[in-house]
Design a protein around this nucleic acid. Structure first.
Lengths: 362, 362
DNA sequence: GTCAAGAATGACAATGTTGTCATTTAGATG
DNA sequence: CATCTAAATGACAACATTGTCATTCTTGAC
């Protein structure tokens, strides 16, 4: 182990001067600094973390707690994957800031969080990010000494948090369809127990109202995929049937996620409805495996997981400064336009939807 | 910060005795130990990591280097996800052993590895695991001081490694089909540049030969998905056409991965071939999103990523002991039997395949 | 009661770094 | 050249812990 003394000896300066160079303090002459630098390089010297830490130095460690790694084993599509992108974002920012990210997994045991937090504190982390696998409210054990930022979730204690703007995402998707000329819409959202379902529902309804659509022209159904274990798609196909049986057939349907959209395709095909010519469909999540392999490729909304991770890390790194902003930060979703959302050819004079109704009556 | 001195004062012993109690050394009287324990609890004393580290104590840290987190952003299906499971396995084992896993990402820049390694060494990790996103040979910078284990990859320097047994996986899949009565087989494998392509090809061919299949009854084609950016599925559909155009139509096709199997479905349907009644298909990777949503659900082979992670971590933790086993450890793949591989109803007397040929000649 | 042996305990040095404060040096001014 | 000022540098303590070795205590045998 090469220590600061060796460097000092080689550069013929005191250990303190080496310390100054290493820490980038300014009162060192250029010529001296250069000499020390050379010695450091030659010996391949690396400051000893332990010793540094003992002098109350920052550890350079950021802790990250997530269920992502475990979760990605079970769920078919995004559930686990989402948090992976959050980790990725946090990782990027931390690395740019010269911090090392320490990742630990809850292994799906929520009560593990406290013990992980203590482990992290034992390693003198400078802060902790907790990333949830889907947008929700959590109860995070308070830590007196360690700053915490929540990612993809929030709590009632006012812990700083970064969450996706589900409302905006659905609103943008709806407005895209409206701009394309669609005037008869339907949405089959996620299970009602999911927070995101409510937010997106509001985004959808608000957009429709803002565009002055008559009440009967935009419908909403809940059709879960995630929650029930067996017969997961029953609510979806039931909702879809209800939509297709209605008098005024919509020209576009938005789904709670890409998987639902994919599952709905055969049912639409069976009803003799062409996508996207007769019916535009829009998913949610931007699950590449689904979106790009579906025919036509699926227009969808992407949750900004990467950005959430970045912002969470940035928030954490800035938390030493007192100028705290808002506790909860919303990161906008983006539309990913592919081929499944299709502009209505003719102006919406209702002939269009009448046609469709006739065609699918067979 | 409450230090060992405070505990010693309260328990009325020397700091050395407190140190002994904390470290579980045995030559302490029970009564003394109890007194110290109480003092520790009362003061909520936690040994200072930095100071401990400085005395050459193990850091309790294991480093993990992977491109997984970044990679999962690009590739549609498993490419990134795979390494996530490796991480998960390593995480499990480390946690059970009381170690904390430190994860860093190469951000796809292969030359970052060296710098990450140094960062880790700066944090005094007890060892490093490098996980590749797909089975391949790598060049890993040698480290004099830190033990390294490679996961899902290997090098030419004899670094301990844990890799999946692609050969066995394909062999098992082939044997499953043979046991089901199939005697005309085809395989459309991965791109030839991928190591796994060769291993699996051998597994396939060896199984066929071991069962005494005549040479003309098992064909192999390379049909990449991953490598070419544009027109990624051209080689696949070309290979598939060649298979379907042949005189003796196979009764089962194995694909290089699940995505290829999924992509092949429409082409099979277009040729009027029923799956699985007329044609069994088998994928590779066990991509849940594809396998369980395909009709019929896809029989496939799963790469043991979780186990690879576990074994890699175990190998690393045992590396202090000199009794090293084999440098490269192969972990077997498992078959995941679903509905797309179907036993041939009649004994294989060639009437079967004759029938099929006729039917698809239209 | 004496002694030996071994167990229990403590005093002190050492670890690699940074903070404090003292000392030296360089540069500017008269 | 003398003097002053500020910058540059260094000596040394302090940080919390463990290793080494010396000392003290306990136990049991004689």
């Amino acid at each position: 182990m090469v220590s600061i003394v060796d460097v000092a000896r080689l550069a013929d300066v005191s250990i303190k001067t080496v310390s100054r160079v290493v820490n980038g303090e300014k009162s060192v002459r250029d010529v001296t600094r250069e000499r020390v630098r050379r010695a450091i390089d030659e010996l391949n010297y690396q400051p000893h973390r332990g010793a540094r830490l003992m002098r109350g130095r920052n550890s350079g460690l950021i802790g990250m707690i997530t269920g992502a790694i475990t979760a990605s084993g079970h769920s078919p599509n995004e559930s686990g994957l989402s948090a992976i992108h959050i980790v990725r974002g946090a990782q990027q920012v931390c690395r740019a800031a010269g911090k090392t990210l320490m990742i630990a997994d809850t292994m799906d045991a929520q009560n593990e969080v406290g013990s992980l937090l203590r482990t992290f504190e034992g390693h003198s982390v400078e802060g902790v990010i907790y990333a949830a696998d889907y947008h929700r409210q959590v109860v995070f054990p308070l830590s007196r000494s360690t700053p915490v930022v929540l990612a993809n979730c929030f709590d009632s204690a006012g812990t700083p948090a970064v969450v996706p703007d589900d409302y905006l995402g659905q609103r943008l998707a709806t407005e895209l369809l409206l701009e394309q000329g669609h005037r008869q819409l339907a949405m089959i959202g996620l299970h009602d127990e999911v927070l995101a379902a409510h937010l997106r529902r509001s985004g959808y309804l608000d957009a429709c109202r803002a565009w002055g659509l008559p009440y009967e022209s935009f419908r909403y159904h809940a059709g879960s995929v995630e929650q029930h274990e067996s017969d997961a798609f029953a609510p979806l196909s039931e909702a879809l049937r209800s939509v297709l049986d209605s008098d005024e057939l919509p020209t576009a349907i938005m789904f709670g996620n890409d998987l639902m959209a994919m599952r709905a395709r055969p049912q639409l095909a069976a009803a003799g409805i062409d996508v996207p010519e007769q019916m535009s469909i829009v998913g949610f999540d931007n699950d590449i495996g689904i979106c790009e392999n579906l025919q036509p490729s699926l227009t969808t909304v992407t949750l900004p997981y990467l950005e959430i991770g970045c912002h969470a890390a940035e928030k954490l790194l800035q938390m030493s400064q007192p100028e705290q902003g808002v506790a909860i930060e919303r990161v906008p979703c983006r539309i990913v336009a592919r081929d499944s959302a299709f502009p209505i050819p003719r102006p919406p004079d209702n002939v269009n939807s009448r046609d469709l109704t006739t065609m699918t009556a067979t």
